[in-house]
Amino acid sequence: MIDIQKITKTYRSETKELLVLKEATASIKPGTFAAICGPSGCGKSTLLLVLGGLLHPDTGRVMIDGEDLFALSSERRALRRAQLLGFVFQRFHLIPYLTVEENIEAAAIALRGSTDQVRAKELMDQLNITDRRTHVPGKLSVGEQQRTALARALYNRPRVLLADEPTGNLDPENAEIVLNAFSDFANAGGTVIMVTHHPEAAEQADTQWWIKNKTLVKG
């Protein structure tokens, strides 16, 4: 269960202040694939970063299974992030010198666990990148890169997937693979929160939320 409680976020620079979110509130149950929609610049990514514990809100709370993310120390929050959350970005953020398999296994870098090669193999099979196992990201197609990033997000068996425009750079075929994987993840009991400004992508989700007037509105 993810509870977003009255999140307010202002970007401050020396010259100006920009209020992006104002008391955004939502509640997303486990087993839900939720899409957060809205035009470019409305604050979707900002909200996602707050949900991921990477960006401090001015006020408000993010509760994940009853635990207030920002009440934790930064170390514990980082650990929770590694344990509970998986990220998928529009720009993949793969590590250029690691192979596909190593990029997937890098998800556990903060958990200090031993490498689970069976899990990596399972995900590569599932996402059809096993034959790219030893290739570095530079040698992969865009779709393969996002599938690798997706496998990395799933590697630690997180409870929540946070995706920021995951299909933004993909062809329809690969977009569908990714969206289907999200549906599968939600059907298996996980929570997916995907932000996008593509209505077609949002349609695949179980519930849609809109950012309107800096706040969340269920659509």
Partner: peptide, 16 residues
């Protein structure tokens, strides 16, 4: 920078 940001997202602290 991108790599560092990702490692942070994966849970590594700034000290690491």
């Amino acid at each position: 920078r991108s790599e560092v940001a990702l490692l942070r997202a994966l849970g590594l602290g700034s000290l690491s």
